[in-house]
Design a protein around this nucleic acid. Structure first.
Lengths: 215, 215
DNA sequence: CTTGAAAGTCTCTATATGGTGACATACAAG
DNA sequence: CTTGTATGTCACCATATAGAGACTTTCAAG
């Protein structure tokens, strides 16, 4: 009888491998899953503890704050955009930029957590989100510079400003597709609309960065 | 003494003019002010009642739900974009589109409530926000059609798609300016950066909608 | 004048949240 | 074996929220 009690206790309490690193990993994975599923509106200490299957006090002990969890999660943001870094585009500036935007659009569409972060930044910016944004901005800037390589935009075109405009459009349309599903009369859920938008991006890039002579 | 008691009571309870229409107007005005100041994160029944200076039960009685308040507020969304409807642009399609974007950008920048709504749509879309978005989309579409007039975009250019891309960029950059204050390495709080972005918009519009011959 | 509905105020409950303290257990160092 | 620390569990508290009920007060219709 005593043995069964001990077995019960050890099953009830000891089943959790007493491993801080594993718990922290579960918290981070839970935060990732929770953000992907419910976004920031349901992102609280209680919900995260339930998702990670641990007590909420451990979140405070190990990360101090929910912002600490976000900051720790941001350490993997390099991984979010990592797979894109490999390839190097070729051709002129316009061609390289088109390839770059296509790759970034695919990566962003496949990353719900990044979408949630980008959306929440437009609603309730916090210090942690600002740090994440700064790091992501640097990463993307470096990545764009690497892909661009030695190609230079045509003279008379403010490439950083134009790229910012196009990148802003890409962010907004991707978020609209997941949330509202439509924008400006276009049904973003249909492949036709997305193809039209991709064509519009290609056209804008081609004409903005066209060489001196345009047909 | 009985008289003073009556006076006190009438001052405490009767000071509120017993007028349902006025109370509804105060609730709507309070919702507008609350949204402009705190956004949707602090948009609750208690906060709205405190802002409007009335009891929260009246919000439920008159509007049923917070979504009802939003829907009623959306009836004034026509007013939000109303002042722009007057002027009619002239020139070619590119020139008219440039004027249109400039006017819309100014109106959006001066309208914090519209900014909050646009931001929240990307985070937590509700049925009420979908209705508001549909109405706003129709209004903007009609306004663009009116300003465009009889000008037609050059052949081979998918004008609705291109305009959607540019409009998306305008929305995103305006929201980023209020929240993060920067995007893609550009400090949006400086007039220089905004001027560069406006120039980028003008360049994109001009080249996308340029007549057949481009220098 | 009486009566009944509308307008408004106050209070209570149920719930969820973030946060903190008290306690139990495992594990390793002494 | 003892002891201390880290890890984990549980219970409690203060707060804010949405919502419903009970209660005045005004006003207008009869």
């Amino acid at each position: 009888m005593a043995g069964s009690e001990i077995a019960l206790k050890s099953e009830r309490l000891g089943s959790r491998a007493r491993d801080r690193a594993a718990t922290e990993a579960r918290i981070l994975e839970g935060a990732r899953a929770l953000l992907a599923r419910s976004g920031f509106t349901g992102f609280g200490v209680n919900a995260l503890a339930a998702e990670a299957g641990c007590d909420k006090v451990l979140i405070r002990r190990y990360f101090g704050d929910l912002d600490g969890v976000l900051t720790a999660l941001g350490g993997e943001i390099g991984f979010w955009l990592g797979p894109m870094r490999a390839r190097q585009a070729s051709g002129g500036y316009a061609a390289r930029m088109a390839a770059l935007f296509g790759a970034y659009a695919s990566a962003l569409r496949a990353n719900p957590v990044l979408q949630r972060v980008l959306g929440w930044e437009l609603v309730d910016p916090s210090a942690a989100l600002r740090r994440l944004d700064a790091a992501r901005s640097r990463a993307i800037g470096g990545w764009m510079q690497a892909v661009r390589g030695d190609a230079v935009p045509p003279a008379g075109v403010d490439a950083p400003a134009v790229n910012a405009v196009l990148l802003a459009a890409l962010h907004y349309l991707t978020l609209r597709e997941r949330t509202m599903g439509s924008f400006a009369g276009l049904d973003l859920s249909t492949p036709e609309a997305r193809e039209r938008l991709e064509a519009a991006f290609r056209l804008l890039i081609a004409r903005a960065y066209a060489p001196e002579t345009t047909p």
